[in-house]
Design a protein around this nucleic acid. Structure first.
Lengths: 261, 261
DNA sequence: AAACACTGTTCCGAATAATGGAACTACCAG
DNA sequence: CTGGTAGTTCCATTATTCGGAACAGTGTTT
């Protein structure tokens, strides 16, 4: 009902793509039959269309997986994104000050999509987080971002959320989330204390630019043994400053740094 | 005619998305009206569907851009890709041996899509090439990959290519390409001598795994002043060895390294 | 070998969504 | 006020999708 609403044929196709992309492992035709509950004929045609268009790849063994054409589209979306370009220098600065991993993400529906990441010393697995979508309720950026929503929008969003306990400290229901948001609003920043991944903490601040319809945030992340109360305390001011500078840059119309050639 | 063929409504929508993603800068409604030649009503509905689905973002100023939802899809496509996972250790090895940038890419339609990249010493702009799609005729991996196609498939593919002179040495027509492929087949590897980007050379070898429908390649890239004939000569054997090892790993059924949990 | 279950593919009348011309709104410039 | 440009909405017509059912291909049990 959510995504196949009011978008006709395209909505149904994209819903199918979403199922394929969100699945833990590769799905076969009959898995999708069960998941969608659609008649064979319809499902078969939809999948064929997706495969011909390159949005879905069909392995010789009958497994459907998200297609490589998506990479090209996404690489353009990323390269063209002005928020990301503007945030970059401030991420760099925050990274220099703290020496820890810095994330920049934006709110999309009920998830945080990571647009960029600066990692300590790791020339190896870089791409990992970029493009990843995480739930709002268990990430610092997510909680910071939604703490700035109006009551109505927040209520709409919370209804979409499916809570899942990733760790013992994960916020597990809407009431607990509402509670946490109160404190976040009061303090002006959010923390994630091993709520998504055991052993990982972060301090995050929201970035909101109404004129650009932008709601997101920036965070400093570190393993728990390098992120005690004292360290986190020290990150608060730099994170909030970076967030504020990015918001300013975005609000003041055109990018002063990279205009589009 | 190419992508909106036999895929009905979805094809038309994706063709539109492709236009938006491929454009140099952001397009407005009337730009798309000219580009597609469609009636206003139809175009407007198609765009609305794309926007509601999150595949396209509409800025407050009326500019259409590829949407952030694509990032999530692509990140899954990338994370799930087994060829990439298998290639990784061999890329690492090749990188250690040569000390230069290593690329791994796959043939999709008439383009090479880069799946991974290991860069010399650059913790900064990582994501850049990954997901990028480049023409076959002016990249080492591209030429190496298509040199292994059958006559028929090659002819089909060459017909899709729109030649564009990126530099003075770019291969500019089908005849020149056919010629170059002869030499590549004979030598067993391909070179790109500033054919795509001035000042950049590479040595590439093809990776072909018929059982997986896989056609791609791996390459070593360097600025021209570090990639003279002697250096390139030294890269040939390691590149070919890496390509061969990756092909072997892919052919032998399941991944010995990362099985899916 | 025959019967069976499982998986995927093809077909075609009925139901539905897309089409596109035209009328409508909003905004700006002269 | 007039004309022009940009974008949105409407609705009868038309083309596409829908989905039940029949039809393969493949391996398994009796």
């Amino acid at each position: 009902m959510s995504s196949s609403d009011e978008t006709g044929t395209l909505g149904k196709a994209i819903h199918l793509l979403d199922l394929i992309a969100s699945a833990q492992d590769a799905l076969r035709f009959s898995d999708l039959l069960k998941l969608t509950g659609q008649p064979k004929g319809s499902l078969h045609r939809q999948l064929r269309h997706l495969v011909v268009e390159g949005l879905v790849d069909l392995s010789p063994d009958g497994a459907y997986q998200p297609g490589l054409r998506l990479l090209k589209f996404a690489s353009r979306a990323w390269a063209r994104n002005t928020a990301r370009k503007l945030a970059e220098p401030h991420m760099k600065q925050l990274h220099d000050v703290t020496g820890e991993t810095v994330h920049f993400g934006v709110l999309r529906e009920a998830e945080i999509v990571y647009l960029d990441k600066l990692e300590s010393r790791q020339a190896v697995r870089m791409h990992s987080q970029v493009g990843n979508a995480s739930p709002v309720y268990c990430t610092g950026i997510g909680k910071a971002a939604i703490s700035c929503l109006t009551e109505d929008r927040l209520a709409d969003l919370v209804q979409q959320v499916r809570f899942h306990r990733y760790t013992a400290s994960t916020i597990a229901d809407a009431a607990a989330l509402k509670n946490a948001l109160g404190l976040i609003r009061q303090r002006g920043y959010a923390e994630d204390l091993e709520e998504h991944q055991a052993g990982i903490c972060c301090v995050a601040a929201s970035i909101v630019v109404p004129s650009q319809n932008f709601i997101g945030g920036i965070s400093v992340t570190a393993p728990v043994f390098r992120a005690g109360p004292l360290e986190r305390e020290k990150w608060v001011a730099p994170v909030r400053r970076a967030a504020s500078l990015i918001a300013d840059d975005m609000a003041c119309g055109l990018s002063p740094v990279h205009q589009d050639r």
